[in-house]
């Protein structure tokens, strides 16, 4: 088995182990933290597909995270009130079933990505970064100015959505759901990366002139990667909404986009478990240092700078050394 795969398994086992120990010791708060890390990791796994494998530096993934969150919040609040979300062109009732909400959250995020990607992928480099940022900011301002679902204050719902056979309000059970989805997303993304599509996508990242010269069109490839990426991040947004039973425009702000990027860069761009390592370290730092000083983000900044300058493969790259990624 490749060393990177072993490392991925080790990181996942450590996360799982932490939760098992916390459960035995009755540390509910630790489980909630681990759940948050798991959800952030999932958001990062989504971004990593675009950023790491596709070379698309999206500074707007919070848009998809937020869309996933709002779809969840809106469906849940309507389910709570027993009203329809929309009656035209067809009647859409609210829902409090995760199995129904997830596909909707992913579809909405994917549809938004199709639109945003189709436009922003006509640019590249700094312009791509700026255009994706601009779209996310637009959505965030839209959420702020839309009073129906809470506007600036955000939207609360009182009961976590349900999953057949589980009590999602029990922290460890909700963690299990998030963890299972993270594992599925990791498997899916490792499969995609190795597929024909993955081969072409990674070729276009490294040398799109060469890809075109052998008959491969980078634009469409990148658009598809962007959409898949957004769907995964949108699913993470849905889970995050359920974790907090609250969504707000902050989920779509550029801070959030930046944080998702930090998970990926800290952990290792284009490394399967990069976002997992990144999100776990982020949450650890936030928890350990955030209590000590409000300036913990300055420290995070320094760490990020050190990684970018001295270990461009991120934490995973550091752990594996010599082993270069494709």
């Amino acid at each position: 088995m490749a060393r990177e795969t072993l490392l991925t398994l080790a990181i996942m086992a450590a996360l799982l182990g932490t939760v098992i120990v916390a459960q035995m010791m009755g540390e509910g708060f630790v489980i909630t933290l681990a759940t948050k890390a798991t959800i952030f990791a999932l958001a990062g796994v989504g971004l990593n597909l675009a950023l790491g494998y596709g070379g698309l530096v999206s500074f707007g993934h919070a848009a998809f995270f937020g869309i996933g969150g709002y779809v969840t919040g809106i469906l849940a609040s309507h389910a709570g009130a027993g009203t329809a979300v929309a009656t035209l062109p067809f009647t859409l009732m609210g829902s409090n079933q995760m199995l129904g909400i997830w596909p909707m959250a992913m579809l909405a995020a994917g549809a938004a990505a199709l639109l945003i990607g189709a436009l922003s992928l006509r640019t590249s480099g700094v312009y791509f970064i700026m255009v994706t940022l601009a779209f996310a900011q637009m959505l965030s301002y839209f959420a702020i100015s839309w009073p129906r679902y809470g506007g600036e204050d955000g939207l609360s719902f009182y009961v976590r959505n349900s999953f057949p056979g589980l009590n999602t309000l029990v922290p460890v059970q909700y963690f299990a759901i998030c963890m299972a989805l993270l594992v599925l997303a990791l498997i899916a993304s490792s499969v995609i990366v190795r597929s024909r599509f993955g081969l072409a996508l990674q070729a276009a990242r490294q040398n799109d002139q060469r890809a075109a010269a052998v008959g491969i069109r980078p634009y469409a490839l990148r658009l598809v990667a962007f959409v898949i990426s957004a769907m995964i991040t949108g699913l993470a947004g849905s889970l995050y909404a359920d974790l907090n039973r609250f969504v707000s425009p902050a989920m779509m702000s550029w801070h959030m986009s930046g944080e998702i990027m930090v998970f990926v860069i800290l952990g290792g761009v284009g490394r399967l478990a990069g976002p997992v390592a990144g999100a776990v370290v982020f949450i650890l730092l936030e928890h350990l240092l955030g209590g000590v000083s409000e300036y913990w983000k300055a420290l995070l900044g320094l760490l990020l700078l050190a990684i970018v300058l001295f270990a461009p493969g991120g934490l995973i790259g550091l752990a594996l050394r010599r082993d270069r990624h494709v």
């Binding site: 499969v191 995609i192 597929s195 024909r196 599509f197 491969i216 598809v224």
Partner: peptide, 15 residues
């Protein structure tokens, strides 16, 4: 792959 088409296949490992 470029010549033969079938770029949009996501499951089977290319190798």
């Amino acid at each position: 792959l470029g010549a033969g088409g079938g770029v949009y296949r996501f499951v089977r490992p290319a190798l």
